[in-house]
């Protein structure tokens, strides 16, 4: 029994120390990382390790809730907003407020010292398992507590959640400045633009089928229309967007600048060869799609 107990203890210790180091490292990384997406991912790491720690502390329900709600919902919400705001908004290293870093470091160290002092001074003995007074399992116990002693805060938090949801809807709502274009108007527009038919979709190949893969025309040339101009950044009068340097598209563009109807009759074999090759380089090109947005922005 002692062995089992010590084995459990050892597992506990190893798990704790491992997770502690990981979570602290991830926390530090989160504060120091330059790109927001990295911060989000590292925060996820922290949350997950915390979930395991909750489990070790005898709070399995909370551990699952942590994973499902916190990491799964809240953190994903962060990532969605990052998508809207723009994943390219990275901080520069230079601190604009004088003395902020120094002061923050000092304050942090001060707080750390203080809290360590407090915690160290407190008499924290070994933990005890929760008794059976609250029911057979953790969930039963929690449920009993929530719906008896903490029912009022529970109701209040529910109201809070409703308010928060409504608030978010109101805040994120975007008013239309002009009337919503009706079907009739849209179709009129389409007919008048000279291209009534829908645009071609992106290319789907054996090894590449992302949205930024251009489709091939019957003569083997790359169809510029198949990739959204937002992605290519090559649309005429294009706004900000990641510029995917698709070699083939570039080539097609320069070639079409010379000959008017290069798109359809085009270069034929040469472009046919360069299609997949272009697609390869395009693939390589899309690899640094993350790095180039900086320049575009």
């Amino acid at each position: 029994m002692v062995l089992a107990a010590s084995a459990a203890d050892t597992t506990r210790s190893i798990t704790f120390w491992l997770l502690a180091i990981i979570s602290v490292a991830a926390g530090l990384g989160m504060v120091l990382a330059r790109r927001a997406v990295h911060c989000a991912v590292l925060l996820a790491v922290v949350m997950l390790s915390l979930a395991v720690l909750y489990a070790m502390l005898g709070a399995p329900f909370l551990a699952f809730v942590q994973v499902i709600v916190y990491t799964g919902a809240v953190l994903m919400l962060f990532l969605f907003v990052m998508m809207i705001v723009g994943i390219s908004s990275a901080d520069s290293i230079i601190e604009t407020i004088r003395g902020q870093r120094m002061a923050a470091a000092l304050a942090g160290i001060g707080l750390l010292v203080l809290l360590t002092f407090i915690v160290g001074h407190a008499a924290i003995g070994p933990g005890t398992r929760t008794g059976a007074a609250y029911g057979s399992s953790n969930i039963n116990g929690l449920a009993t507590l929530i719906f008896t002693r903490y029912v009022f805060p529970f109701e209040i938090t529910s109201a809070l959640l409703i308010t928060a949801a409504l608030g978010a809807m109101v805040l994120a709502h975007a008013e239309r400045t002009s009337a919503k274009p009706t079907q009739r108007r849209l179709s009129r527009q389409r007919v008048a633009s000279g291209r009534p038919a829908p645009l071609p979709g992106p290319g789907t190949y054996a090894r590449h089928n992302a949205v930024d893969m251009p489709a091939l025309l019957p003569d083997g040339s790359v169809s510029r229309l198949s990739v959204s101009p937002v992605i290519t950044g090559l649309a005429r009068g294009a706004g900000p967007g990641p510029a995917v340097r698709t070699e083939a598209l570039r080539a097609a563009d320069t070639a079409s600048a010379g000959t008017a109807s290069a798109g359809i009759n085009g270069t034929g074999g040469g472009s046919h060869d360069s299609g997949p090759a272009g697609a390869d380089s395009g693939d390589a090109g899309s690899g640094d799609a993350d790095s180039t947005p900086k320049e575009a922005r």
Binding site: G27, L28, V31, A103, A104, A107, L111, L115
Partner: peptide, 14 residues
């Protein structure tokens, strides 16, 4: 405590 302090400093610095 450690995580809290890290988070606090992060709020001030980022």
């Amino acid at each position: 405590v450690i995580l809290f302090v890290i988070g606090g400093v992060g709020v001030l610095v980022r």
